[in-house]
Design a protein around this nucleic acid. Sequence first.
DNA 1: AATCCTTTGAAGTAC
DNA 2: GTACTTCAAAGGATT
Length: 508
Amino acid sequence: MPQLSSGGGDDLGANDEMIAFKDEGEQEEKIQENAFTERDLADLKSSLVNESEISQSPNAAAVRRGHQGEQRGFLDKHREHLDGVSKQQDGGMYKTPAYPGYPFLMLPDPYLPNSSVSPSSNKVSVVQQSHGMHPLTSLLPYSNEHFSPSPPHLPTDMSQKTGVHRHQSQDLSGYYSLPPGGVGQITPSMGWSPHSLMLGPSGMHPTGIPHPAIVPPTGKQEHEQYDRGMYVKPQVEAKREKEPKKPVIKKPLNAFMLYMKEMRAKVIAECTLKESAAINQILGRRWHALTREEQAKYYELARKERQLHMQLYPTWSARDNYEAGLSGVAGAKSKADWGKKKRRKREKQQDSNTDPGSPKKCRARFGLNQQTDWCGPCRRKKKCIRYLQGGGCPSPTSSDLSAIDSPTSPSPACQRLYQHQRAPSPCCSPPPTSPSTQLPLSLPTHTNSHTHLPLEQSDDKRSNLHLPTTKHTPSHLELSGKHMHSSAMALSAAKAAGLSLKVLTETQ
DNA sequence: AATCCTTTGAAGTAC
DNA sequence: GTACTTCAAAGGATT
């Protein structure tokens, strides 16, 4: 269970996992609630927008902004509504005030037998976004009436096994992110009805629940048809009959994904960005800029998503979608593509790993005490991009450099960006300034081993927050953070003290 | 049309 | 236990 253990061993991050966010010096200041000041936005824009989004249509931006305005209006309304609802129903999921923008909070805890969302509260119209779905679509529970009350082929043992009433699962199914081409796009106004669910194997979850995590195993076109509830394509169906494919059950969204879903529209509106990659970078920064409390909300939601996912698809495994590539994986357009993709990645890896004798990782080279010298991926426990390439080891530059990449040692991705004369990604740009203070306090960093969050989260006596449990030993910073009232304070203090991440994270 | 890019986190495999 | 990989969303950009 995701936990914040402000009391006993704080496990927000392993000391070897402190992630430096140095690229936006000012960001530390803003670690308060919504966290984004205009200055921050300006920073982001200057580092991202101006570089990568020069050539976009102002008109489109204006339109988008208008759209966002509407959306915000909707959200505000929705939040008002939810504020009331969540107070009644949330049951105190968090001790901190309910996050106003998170409709998930209104959803019943599957573990609470009596928890259910009243139909009225659950009937939230799903507003469609210009890109196909409302950013909060995943956060907006379906109306119950859209579902058949008793899915015919729900595994009979499921509810018994999990102790969850069927009804609840239906309610909870609204948790899931809706694939752009998934049922989530089918709004009440579109005449969505249980009948439209009877569309054949590809559109239906084995449980009979029109779960948004389920997408047809094939490509876009079918998605679109699926969207419209017009899953009528004889040829495709014939194909399907020939090679019956399971509906693809997508992975539950993790905390960051949930956050992205919610915030994407906001970022798009604020930054007039279009490129998802750039947006995601911003979101990544913002994510780190969030306070623990804010992140905890998303971790909790993610936990619930997984929980629900597990309940709905007890037999599903993430591996299914690995393998699904061979039989129609989500994301992969086709079997062949998936294979290609996989192959390509492997080739990449091989290419970059030709010298077995060379230092393999920043971790190995610099050790935990010099994590600020690590390349970004190493800090994120991803594959090292710096020393895999033949051992040529650009001396790490300032520890204040971006956590992602330093200008002197651009990642392959960045190099590629340069090669293609794309606007340099922020990761390739010299970070704005200051060393990061953002570190870890806001990060539920984990140890290298997975932090498989237990679904059963014990009553957290140590903290009112729920972040993934980690096993690390507390670092100085963390200890400091523990004694600080908030990460913002810690960060501010750290900044005021002129402490660098490096200093802060040195523990041994 | 297909793939890339980019982010973090979860969960999988491999050793 | 550690290291690494894949996938989840998104949509413009690139191939």
